Simulated assay, not measured.
Amino acid sequence: MSENEHNEPTNVPLAGVIGWPIAHSRSPRLHGHWLQRYGLKGHYVPLPVRPEHLAEVLRTLPRAGFVGVNVTIPHKEAVLALADVVTDRAALIGAANTLIFRPDGKIHADNTDGYGFIANLRQSAPDWIPEFGPAAILGAGGAARAVVASLLDAGVPEVRLANRTRLRAEQIRSEFGARVVVYDWGQAGNMLEGVATAVNATSLGMEGAGSLRVPLDALPPEALATDLVYTPLDTPFLIDARARGCQTVDGLGMLLHQAAPGFERWFGRKPEVDDELRRAVLA
């Protein structure tokens, strides 16, 4: 190695995903596939960070060559208070999943979950028309908030919401306004009547979680049904909806699409979401 080579900094961009725990995350495989596919310099790593260390870690990462991180449970709300710049959609949703460490030292927080949700529907169901009728969402957690925001933004005339704890659904209605209508969890089956889009935004139906015991008898066969759960890929909710004649979209695409804006900002290349990527992430 020449002396000149030895002195030049490499400046390989680093990014990662912060959570606690983090071993289950598919993000390193996802971003790693894109880096390899486009022959880009860069690394994307899992970063297990305890809640009490979050602020300290976020201050340290840019100094260690990090250009940004994805954020997952339990840090998605906490990072908003630590960011210098928060996008409107992240503020509205009350959570961030993508941080950009800017050259001026500021931390920029965004939420791309809603973007990923809509991009997945548009790619997997090109005939889907949001304005066609009401949407029904089961669940009122952080992911559901992103879905509500994105559906209202896409032009859905009404969003019907049911959650096991009604208060959480009421909070969403108070923040997002009159186009959100809250139903009791016991009436969740009835809220599906006449909808054009049905979304399971609960963890029910996930491997190791409980069953989603909401009857789908009122779900119109021309509706589109999608599940945010992607383990298993074909959830009981999707299987039941398909048996009624509905078009279904699995939840993996949302994970893939929500990753794209961060990747583009960090590594300078707009990545493609396609079958090759799905196979790589599922491998």
Rank of each mutant, 00 (worst) to 15 (best):
A280L: 04
Q187R: 12
V214M: 01
S174G: 08
S2I: 02
F117D: 05
P74W: 00
E77N: 05
L212R: 02
D113Q: 14
W185H: 11
V159T: 13
E170Y: 09
G32Y: 06
E3H: 07
H257G: 04
V199E: 05
R179M: 11
D227G: 09
R160Q: 02
V45H: 05
R179G: 10
W266L: 08
E264S: 12
L256I: 12
E207S: 14
I137Q: 00
G32K: 10
V249N: 04
L99Q: 11
F132E: 13
P74S: 00
E175D: 13
L216C: 10
G268L: 00
A178I: 04
T98H: 09
V79T: 12
E193R: 02
L35A: 03
A154R: 11
V273N: 06
L121H: 15
A283S: 13
V49L: 09
N70L: 06
A198L: 09
T60F: 00
L256A: 15
G177Q: 04
R122E: 13
V86G: 15
F176P: 00
A225T: 04
T72H: 02
Y115I: 14
W34A: 09
G19I: 09
V57T: 10
F237P: 05
A15P: 03
A162E: 03
A81D: 14
L192I: 09
L54N: 15
D184T: 03
Y115E: 14
S2L: 06
A23N: 13
E8Y: 12
V281G: 07
A83P: 03
G251N: 05
V17M: 08
M206Q: 15
L99G: 09
R63V: 06
R265Y: 10
K270I: 04
H108Y: 15
P103R: 00
Q123D: 05
L204D: 10
A96Y: 08
F237I: 11
L233E: 14
A109L: 01
D84L: 05
T60H: 02
G268S: 00
E56Q: 13
A149W: 03
F117K: 00
H6Q: 14
P271T: 03
E222V: 08
L212T: 02
R278H: 13
L282Q: 15
T226Y: 06
T248E: 15
L167T: 11
L219K: 01
